[in-house]
């Protein structure tokens, strides 16, 4: 009886951990780069959904607050790969 009382909770725990591993395992950082971009908010990377800035060589910018300032957008959290496009400002709020 004591074994039964412990068995189900432990099984639930193992199931939850397996779910977490299966659902969140990210072996390819390129996936993140495709899904998310990062706005340079005063030196801190601010994660935003990936932007489509059309074709171009100007850096994309994003506005994260209504009527707020716009920020440069990068492809990576290290803010080293700028997202290039037509230089338009995208609202992401």
């Amino acid at each position: 009886m004591k074994f039964k009382r412990m068995f189900l909770p432990i099984l639930t725990f193992m199931f939850a951990i397996s779910l977490a591993i299966a659902g969140n395992a990210n072996f390819n950082n390129e996936m993140d780069q495709q899904q998310y971009d990062y706005a340079d908010v005063n030196g801190t990377p601010y994660q935003i959904p990936a932007l489509d800035c059309n074709e171009g060589e100007s850096q994309c910018r994003a506005r994260i607050v209504e009527n707020g300032p716009s920020y440069d957008v990068y492809d990576d959290e290290a803010l080293s790969i700028p997202v290039e496009g037509d230089g338009s400002v995208t609202d992401v709020f």
């Binding site: 939850a16 779910l19 977490a20 395992a25």
Partner: peptide
Amino acid sequence: ILLFAYTGGSKLI
């Protein structure tokens, strides 16, 4: 157990 093991595990990974 399901909630905390899942969210804790996801965040640690």
